[in-house]
Design a binder for these strands. Structure first.
Lengths: 130, 130
DNA sequence: CTCTTATTGGAAATGATTTTCAATAAGAAA
DNA sequence: TTTCTTATTGAAAATCATTTCCAATAAGAG
């Protein structure tokens, strides 16, 4: 099975490489259309799943059941806001306890996801309380 | 708005209190049927969402897009297997770096989720390699 | 240039979850 | 206990992200 290079594969990988906002499949699709790139939704799903299998891209599912994707980079973990469902990168170099877990359970930094309420939402929620 | 006690609410909360396997809504529904408890699927979804809002129960979405639920208990985090999608509890008392994050981002221990490959799957995957 | 087959993409299927809304029942008040 | 208000339930239908199917397309080896 020889893999082939296609403009669709190139678009998905390059797009993810050049952004830091953890887009959903739908967002990638919209961006492709905006840029005039011919690509079907199915192909985006398929290409993303392959990239995840290859380990080049990681998949983060937010609590609204939408998958988000991120080109794998080093030394950061993900913070997911349970309110706005945005995903934030957080620098986090190895610490002792997490390293121990990594040895037990086959995880890497980009597999560490913390769910909470981001600063923006915390502010909005507080100021809406009378 | 006065809340009312119902056998459906009681079933969902007590069932979650007495188990440690992080069931999905479907699993809760099957168990109710098995126990002869009259409850519709919609009610399970609705009751679970309310318990999550109240902070009594936490919701963990696995990468197969299925939500799992856990009665909130102290001092543990969750490990999710990306292969079998099972969820494991892991004792993990406060450590310095995570505590710092908790202050920045409004998270608590049960919001810490690590995705990886569990020991069982690691073994299966390794032994299936020729 | 030809040919094989990896890849694409629209349509349809899937499956978890949510919405709608009429029927039911909890529990306060009489 | 009975009545009455309305919170709650649950079946059917809708929603929505994602996957499957499969015929048409195109990468790139020969």
């Amino acid at each position: 099975m020889v893999t082939r290079n296609t403009k669709q594969k190139e678009f998905v990988l390059n797009n993810l490489k050049n952004r830091y906002d953890h887009p959903s499949s739908q967002k990638l699709y919209d961006d492709a259309k905006k840029q005039g790139i011919e690509i079907g939704k199915v192909s985006i799903y398929r290409i993303l799943n392959n990239l995840v299998k290859e380990g080049l891209v990681c998949k983060i599912v937010t609590k609204d059941n939408v998958a988000h994707f991120d080109f794998v980079r080093k030394n950061h973990i993900h913070l997911v806001c349970n309110n706005c469902n945005r995903i934030f990168d957080k620098n986090f170099d190895n610490d002792e306890k997490l390293t121990k877990l990594i040895n037990d359970f086959n995880i890497s930094m980009q597999d560490v996801i913390l769910y909470g309420i981001c600063k923006d939402c915390k502010q909005t929620i507080n100021s809406s309380k009378q």
